[in-house]
């Protein structure tokens, strides 16, 4: 009797996952086997391995890596400081708050901030560094992306730092470890789970960023996301768009596997 009831309760979840997770993925895979004229073929997969798309894939992965790296660099110390703060809830709230604002709105704000004659440019000119192009460069793209992703990295790290038993840290100091050794040997390994989930939460979306590549990088950065958008909306070549999406999904699986299994554990 009870078993039956639990099964009934499962129905909505099974339906949800079936309709909104499994079915769309299956459709993406299905479409990827059709060329632009609607014939079944593997042409799209061959096309992916031509220089244009390979270069695009490499640059996407490269940028996603940099974005994740810099986000981690900023987020870890911030999360650490956060755990020592008095009004943690308030600070945490302030960090989450920007995520309530639409991403496009923030991107437009950055166009104003980073543009020629914008505040940042003027500040640089006044400080003697001279006017230089900031908007529409690869570095401004990384900068703005890092800004957008920081909250998603801070939260999981903060959570695992919170859970960290402070007696371990005290024990390390008592046994004569330096601050750096304590961090490297005790704190960081114990918060690795948070770092991993933070990296996943940043790396995967960073791979497929597309509006920012135009708004902030002026199409100087082309990611796979840009190509997917173009294939679906302009070329109406859904097959190629789906194929790129399949490769993104594969990349995601690889990242998850790497993060889960192990190379980081050697630390």
């Amino acid at each position: 009797m009870t078993k039956k009831w639990t099964n009934t309760y499962l129905i909505p979840y099974v339906l949800w996952i079936g309709l909104f997770v499994v079915a769309p993925l299956a459709m993406v895979l299905y479409y990827s086997f059709f060329d632009i004229q609607g014939h079944f073929s593997f042409e799209n997969y061959l096309r992916f391995f031509t220089p244009i798309y390979l270069k695009m894939a490499i640059s996407s992965i490269g940028y996603a890596f940099f974005i994740t790296f810099f986000t981690l660099l900023v987020a870890y110390p911030t999360a650490y400081l956060l755990t020592r703060m008095k009004n943690r809830r308030l600070w945490l709230m302030l960090i989450i708050l920007p995520t309530w604002i639409n991403i496009l709105l923030k991107a437009y704000a950055f166009i104003g901030l980073l543009g020629t004659y914008g505040p940042v440019d003027t500040l640089l000119a006044m400080s003697g560094a001279g006017r230089r192009q900031i908007l529409f460069t690869g570095s401004s793209f990384v900068f703005v992306s890092v800004y957008l992703f920081i909250p998603f990295m801070i939260l999981p790290i903060y959570n695992s730092l919170e859970k960290l038993n402070s007696s371990f840290v005290e024990a390390a100091y008592d046994l004569g470890a330096s601050a750096w050794a304590t961090f490297r040997r005790v704190i960081f390994p114990l918060t690795l789970e948070g770092v991993k989930s933070g990296c996943q939460a940043v790396f995967i979306p960073a791979l497929s960023l597309f509006m920012l590549t135009r708004l902030i990088a002026g199409n100087r950065v082309i990611t796979l996301g840009t190509a997917i958008e173009e294939h679906f909306l302009v070329t109406q070549d859904w097959g190629m768009g789906s194929t790129i999406a399949v490769f993104l999904i594969l990349a995601m699986v690889v990242v998850m596997a790497l993060m889960g299994k192990g190379w980081l554990k050697r630390w």
Binding site: Y108, I111, Q133, L135, F136, R214, L215, G218, N219, R220
Partner: peptide, 10 residues
């Protein structure tokens, strides 16, 4: 300098 969409009006 850049390849942009409607932002050019801005």
């Amino acid at each position: 300098k850049a390849i942009v969409g409607d932002e050019n009006k801005l």
